[in-house]
């Protein structure tokens, strides 16, 4: 299996990038895929707060941190790396990856690159799709519709919807369903991964007393996200069993 980099990002803020990264980290951990994560929300990272054991905070603009991520892809025991980009840093991260030759290495088959582009309910967010296109020629590119915020992604306006989504030939789509606010906030307070909350454990692994109803909602939500990941064959993409078409 060649090393895989999964970039979760968006330039627009508040679209749920870290929620998607957390759900992804939980999914891969649940499938016994050894995963490490890099949180570019320097100096304090939200992903680091929930997945402290596997996450390192990095400054994507810093050469030493770029080396920390990319130069260790081949040597690290852990072959899957999630990069959670902070708001406004997607284009910059993609440029940085291009400049250090990462995309050339992907094209040559040394690495697998998967991009989850998290979309928000604004034209500005959809405009990012065309800005991202030049970087994704050799990537498994997925547009992530995060329904955590009740967005419709302009599906009610076919002209607008088509205008943006038809530009992304070859891109897959992933839908993150809505999670009840109360359940989401309770996990936020608990400061633990979603799966640990569902298992009624505190962030340090001790038995907790979380509401069963809220755990049930999170469990159902996670199940739906897992179905989405399975629909796109994420594990096959990571293992290299499935090639980019």
């Amino acid at each position: 299996m060649k090393p895989a980099v999964i970039l979760v990002g968006a330039d627009k803020g508040g679209v749920g990038k870290t929620t998607v990264a957390r759900a992804l980290a939980d999914y891969l951990t649940g499938k016994n895929i050894m995963t490490r994560a890099f949180d570019t929300e320097s100096p304090r990272g939200t992903l680091k707060r929930f997945h402290g054991d596997m996450t390192e905070i990095v400054d994507i603009d810093s050469t030493s941190d770029q080396m920390k991520i990319l130069d260790t892809l081949n040597t690290a025991q852990v072959k899957v790396s999630i990069i959670d980009t902070r708001a406004g840093a997607l284009a910059r991260t993609l440029r940085a990856l291009r400049d250090v030759g990462f995309f050339d290495a992907v094209r040559e088959g040394h690495f697998t690159f998967i991009l989850f582009h998290v979309l928000g309910p604004s034209i500005a967010s959809l405009d990012e799709i065309s800005e991202t296109a030049p970087f994704v020629a050799n990537a498994h590119y997925f547009l992530v519709k995060n329904h955590v915020n009740d967005s419709t992604f302009f599906e009610w306006d076919p002209a607008t919807y088509q205008n943006y989504f038809s530009k992304t030939r070859g891109a897959g789509e992933l839908t993150i369903p809505k999670l009840s606010e109360m359940a989401y906030e309770q996990v936020e307070i608990a400061g633990s991964p979603f799966s640990q909350f569902v298992g009624n454990k505190t962030s340090d692994g001790r038995p907790a007393a979380h509401s069963f109803v809220l755990r049930g909602y999170v469990r159902t939500w996670q199940g739906k996200i897992a179905e989405e990941f399975e629909k796109i064959g994420l594990l096959d993409l990571i293992s290299g069993a499935s090639q980019k078409k």
Binding site: S180, E181, M182, S211, F212, V213, L214, G216
Partner: peptide, 13 residues
């Protein structure tokens, strides 16, 4: 409401 569901189902279990 989620509050109502928590008040009821958590107790039922």
């Amino acid at each position: 409401t989620i509050e109502g569901q928590v008040a009821m189902f958590d107790r039922l279990l």
